[in-house]
Design a protein around this nucleic acid. Structure first.
Lengths: 227, 227
DNA sequence: GTCTATAGGGGGATAGAC
DNA sequence: GTCTATCCCCCTATAGAC
């Protein structure tokens, strides 16, 4: 019945971080929520910063392994052929959405992750960059192969926009209330909605960019067909 | 050459808020940056919270007025006919992107706004809800009219996803580095890229919400009619 | 391993001189 | 309007008893 103090601290920190942000969450709040002593954090983790890293690493490593596993499975199936964009989106964003639907802590963590991208503490940013390096490299390569007609820079922006949509899909329960009453209780529906939106955006007609203009000139508002 | 202390404090707070977040920014940092005395914040604004509100209100009111003006202009032109989705997206997101391109403070502010949605302090959330009430109502109505075949709940989610993409488009300069080197120096290009992505997502085929959970229990009767 | 107690540093806010 | 000085609070981290 009595769970490990270390685990209780990680769980409490995760919950409080997502509610109040990293900085506004104090060790006193964490240890009170975890029913542990104030000194327990420093005993088990060494510092607040080290605890923060542990909170992220605990689930993020697993999440990115799942993403890579999903991508690898599709690639094995495709036998060297480019994947369908939908499969790659599924492997990256679908896995994240499913983790966000997991009420056993995954949900809390994904909300934390969603708000952390736009909340850049120096050490968290550095840490995230390391944790993401491999998965980003794998998915970039897969996307470039699957979408040879989309310029790579255009794709990187779209990937970035997709991450924004994912972030709001997950952590947006609060911000969403701005728009009025909405039902966010069905993870399957959210999954379907987000996938549809992302693929629509990813495969949108390419914007008609002026080819490196030095002077400001009129632009044609029309777009071209995408691949 | 000596500008108003009040203005210098607002500018300094805006810059520091976007760099460190609301909570981690101290009055001491703000007054040092503004070359003002520590007591000046409380003299001019009353409290840190009141200063925070002033920082947001200064530009947000103007931004939302611009959005409503842009929408009204399109509506006047349309003479009662539904607008094109592209026009509504332009009025809401285009205005924001253009403000983000304004190096005269607008850029800083939009980055702040982008990270604030996912960083919910109770009083900021309440404040944003008030500031946004009118503009949200106007744009929801316009979208519903322009997209009669998209179920309203589906649209609200898509609007939410679009806000996520906007947020990352603006404040994502940092998070973006995860993806590798990328050129974010051309606001016109960013504008074109985001518009294209948003409209692609907004007009994506509707997700089939009923077929998905086939292995699980039956879900709600229907996903309304599709177009 | 877990606790109490405390050190040592900032934090927001304010009183009162100028 | 602006400044100095200060109050009182809460923070992280640690020393040392149990």
């Amino acid at each position: 019945m009595e769970t490990d103090t270390r685990i209780r601290i990680l769980d409490a920190a995760e919950r409080l971080f997502v509610m109040h942000g990293l900085d506004a969450t104090t060790l006193r709040m964490i240890t009170a929520e975890a029913q542990a002593n104030l000194a327990a954090v420093n005993y088990h983790f060494g510092s607040k910063e080290a605890l923060t890293e542990a909170v992220f690493r605990r689930r993020l490593t697993w999440l990115n392994e799942q993403r890579i596993a999903a991508l690898s499975a599709f690639e094995a199936e495709a036998k060297g052929q480019p994947l369908k964009p939908r499969q790659i989106v599924e492997a990256f964003f679908g896995v994240a959405i499913r983790m966000a639907a997991d009420h056993n802590g995954g949900q809390t963590f994904m909300r934390l992750l969603g708000r952390t991208y736009t909340e850049p503490t120096e050490f968290v940013r550095k840490f995230l960059a390391e944790e993401y390096a491999e998965v980003i490299a794998r998915f970039k390569a897969a996307f470039f192969k699957a979408l040879p007609d989309v310029p790579q820079e255009e794709f990187l922006w779209r990937f970035h926009f997709m991450m924004g949509a994912l972030s709001y899909a997950i952590s947006g329960t609060e911000a969403l209330r701005l728009l009025g009453p909405i039902d966010d209780s069905d993870p399957e529906a959210l999954y379907a909605r987000l996938m549809s939106f992302l693929i629509g955006g990813l495969r949108a007609p390419l914007p008609d960019l002026v080819v490196k203009p030095v002077a400001k000139t009129a632009r044609k508002p029309r777009a071209k067909r995408a691949a």
